[in-house]
C-alpha cells in the first residue's frame, strides 16, 4: 500500500537582497517518490541537496522565505499541501511523526520527559492522564530504556545523546503514527549507539507495518537499514530504487560517483571526478543540474532529463541511461 506519494514538489527560497533585488533559490526542483507501508526509505544526498527541506515541505513546517510553489504530497490519498492548516496540525504528531536531528535541542528543557510524552499523547487523544502515563512507560520500555518508570521523571539535560534520541523516537511513536520521518536520526551519535537506534527503528517498522523515511548522508545506514533509497542532487531525485539494486548498478553518474567515494570502494590515487562545492541554487544549469560536473555530459543534457525506468522500481533521471 502506498502510504506517501510525493509528486513534482517544488520549493523556493524567495528573498530580497540588500540592493532590493528579488532572489530566488530553487531548492527543490520536482521531487517525486513514493513510500510503501512496511518499508524504510532512505533519502540520501550531500549538503544542500534538499533532503531535510523535502521533509519540512511535506510536513508543512516551512518558514519564510521558503515556500512550496508547486507539487503534491499525498498521504493516504490526501494532499497534505492543499489541506487547511488545522487539518495538517491534527495529522502531525498523530499520523505523521518527525524525529529531528540534534535530540538534545529538540526536547523541552523545562519539562520532565514523562510529562512531554504524556502531553503529546493527550494533545491528540481523549485519554486520561493515568492511561497516557502507562502508555509512556510502556513506550520507553519498548525502546530499550532501562528502568522506564523512574526515567519518566528525568530532565532532558540528564540524558546522554543516545538516550535523548530514544526519548525523541518515543515522542514520535506515542500516537502510533502511520508514517515516521527521521532526519539524520543518528548523526552525532557514537557508532555503537547508532547501531542500537537503527535496530530499534527497523524492528519497529517490521513489527507495526508503518512506513519510515530516513534522511541521511551516510550510505552505510542506507545499505543496511533501508529497503529502498532515493538519491538527491540539487533539489531533485536523480535515482531511486531498491537498495541492493542501486548499490549493485548505480545508473546516474552522480550516484555512481557517490557510491564510488565510500571508503569501501575508494581507491586512493585512482583518477576520479573530484567532489565539488554544493551546486549554486540561485544559478542552476538548464536541463540536468549535474551536467556541469558530469563526466558523461553532452549537448542533449541541456534538455530536462527523462526518468528512465530500469525495472523493479529502479529509476534514474538521466539522458545517458538506456532502459
Amino acid at each position: 500500500m502506498t502510504l506517501l506519494s510525493v509528486e513534482d514538489l517544488h520549493t523556493h527560497f524567495i528573498s530580497r537582497d540588500l540592493d532590493n533585488q528579488i532572489r530566488v533559490a530553487r531548492a527543490l526542483n520536482g521531487v517525486s517518490f513514493t513510500l510503501e507501508a512496511g518499508q524504510v526509505l532512505g533519502l540520501v544526498g550531500e549538503t544542500g541537496a534538499g533532503k531535510s527541506l523535502t521533509a519540512t515541505s511535506i510536513m508543512g513546517l516551512l518558514r519564510p522565505p521558503a515556500r512550496v510553489v508547486g507539487g503534491r504530497a499525498l498521504f493516504q490519498g490526501q494532499d497534505l499541501l492543499a489541506m487547511p492548516e488545522a487539518q495538517v496540525n491534527a495529522l502531525r504528531g498523530r499520523d505523521i511523526a518527525l524525529v529531528v536531528q540534534s535530540p538534545k535541542s529538540s526536547l523541552d528543557p523545562l519539562t520532565r520527559i514523562g510529562n512531554q510524552l504524556i502531553r503529546i499523547h493527550r494533545a491528540h487523544r481523549q485519554v486520561s492522564e493515568r492511561a497516557a502515563r502507562d502508555r509512556a512507560v510502556e513506550m520507553l520500555a519498548s525502546l530499550g530504556i532501562p528502568d522506564p518508570a523512574r526515567r519518566m521523571a528525568a530532565w532532558p539535560h540528564e540524558l546522554s545523546g543516545g538516550m535523548a534520541q530514544r526519548v525523541l523516537i518515543a515522542l514520535a511513536l506515542m500516537n502510533e503514527p502511520r508514517l515516521l520521518i527521521a532526519d539524520e536520526p543518528t548523526t552525532g551519535l557514537d557508532v555503537t549507539v547508532q547501531a542500537q537506534i537503527l535496530d530499534l527503528l527497523r524492528d519497529l517498522v517490521r513489527r507495526t507495518g508503518i512506513g519510515a523515511m530516513v534522511i541521511t548522508h551516510d550510505l552505510g545506514v542506507v545499505a543496511h537499514y533501508c529497503d529502498a533509497m532515493a538519491v538527491m542532487y540539487a533539489g531533485a531525485i536523480v535515482e531511486s530504487g531498491p537498495v541492493r539494486r542501486v548499490f549493485a548498478s548505480p545508473s546516474h553518474p552522480y550516484t555512481a560517483n557517490l557510491i564510488g567515494a565510500t571508503p569501501e570502494r575508494l581507491q586512493l590515487g585512482a583518477a576520479r571526478t573530484v567532489g565539488g562545492p554544493p551546486p549554486n541554487l540561485f544559478r542552476l544549469p538548464e536541463g540536468c543540474a549535474y551536467r556541469d560536473r558530469c563526466p558523461r555530459a553532452g549537448a542533449d543534457c541541456a534538455q530536462p532529463p527523462p526518468d528512465v525506468a530500469l525495472g523493479q522500481g529502479h529509476v534514474a533521471r538521466c539522458h545517458r541511461v538506456a532502459a
Binding site: V191, T192, G220, A223, H224, R244, I259, E264
Partner: peptide, 18 residues
C-alpha cells in the same frame, strides 16, 4: 566497535555485538 561499523555495501554481512 568494528561490528557496529556499517560498510556502505548492502552485501557486506554484519556481525553484530550490541
Amino acid at each position: 566497535l568494528m561490528s557496529a561499523h556499517l560498510p556502505a555495501d548492502p552485501e557486506a554481512v554484519l556481525r553484530r555485538h550490541v
